[in-house]
Write a protein that binds this DNA or RNA. Structure first.
Length: 269
DNA sequence: ATGACTTCCTTAGGAAGA
């Protein structure tokens, strides 16, 4: 494979948007797609429609809420983990990990955490701590890893149109941002921020107040690259056109293109 | 500001999202 395109997309209900999902897959042809907020039970996951679109899939669903999936174009992802370690009582379907095209892909849907303070925000921070623990294990393994998903964190004020009306929101709390910074400090590369420098780039526009029409967005969907993959980052972007379609998700897909692995050095003659 | 939109689940309105 010459290069590989990996995307993450909070679909906000896969059954109500399967047509839009297929349209996006056909037009952008990601090799790997991480999906969040399936909002459907495992038995109702539209595996047949995705197969018709040329994608194999693994999924971890839940009735009404949450739910994550990993899709692979012309391949079957090999599931290696379902759920984050560290809390056997956690009933939310928010993490799935699979090997595909020689890369270990972690697909995550981090808890929103509103309202804060409160038990939902406590759950967010506890889940984040478990993610950080697991991410350290992955990073230390030396394998090529991408951690992609809806992190529900606006990392800095550069990642939002205007922080004023969001200051009390769980997505901008110092604790949320510090947790994200702790994760990055393990050595992960935030692919879109690295690629775009200080440029404004958003992945979410809420349904209220004509925020899409005024480009009042937030960057909360992230792709983190392991040390092995960071030098292979060729391109990154957001498929903003998806947010402008009829009855869209409130998120748009974010993606990276990774160069092929460096060829092994030839033995000296 | 218990707001606004939109989904799910169910069939009128609550829960949840961010």
């Amino acid at each position: 494979m010459p290069a590989i395109k990996i995307a993450t997309f909070n679909i906000n209900g896969i059954r109500s948007r399967i047509g839009a999902l297929r349209h996006w897959l056909e037009r952008e042809a990601p090799d790997v797609a991480c999906l969040q907020e399936l909002k459907t039970a495992d038995e109702s996951f539209p595996a047949r429609e995705l197969r018709e679109a040329g994608y194999g899939a693994v999924w971890h669903g839940q009735k009404s809420w949450n739910g994550v999936a990993i899709l692979a174009r012309g391949a079957e992802p090999v599931e290696v983990r379902r759920g984050l370690p560290g809390d056997p009582d956690d009933s939310h379907s928010r993490y799935l990990e699979a090997a595909v095209h020689g890369i270990l892909v972690g697909c995550l849907y981090l808890p929103n955490g509103n309202p804060q303070p409160g038990p939902r925000f406590d759950y967010k921070l506890a889940w984040f701590a478990r993610l950080i623990d697991h991410a350290q294990t992955l990073f230390d393994s030396g394998h090529p890893v991408v951690l992609a998903g809806d992190y529900n964190v606006v990392p800095t004020d550069v990642d939002i149109y205007n922080p004023r009306s969001w200051r009390k929101d769980a997505l901008l709390q110092p604790e949320s941002r510090e947790a994200y910074a702790r994760l990055l400090a393990q050595g992960w590369t935030d692919a879109l921020r690295t690629h775009y420098g200080e440029e404004r780039i958003y992945t979410f526009w809420d349904y209220f107040r004509q925020h899409w029409q005024t480009n009042s967005g937030l960057r909360i969907d992230h792709l983190l690259l392991s040390a092995d993959l960071a030098p292979r980052l060729r391109d990154a972007g957001v498929d903003t056109w998806v947010r402008g379609e009829d009855h869209p998700s409130d998120h748009a897909p974010a993606w990276v293109v990774l160069n092929r692995p460096a060829a092994r050095r030839k033995r000296p003659a």
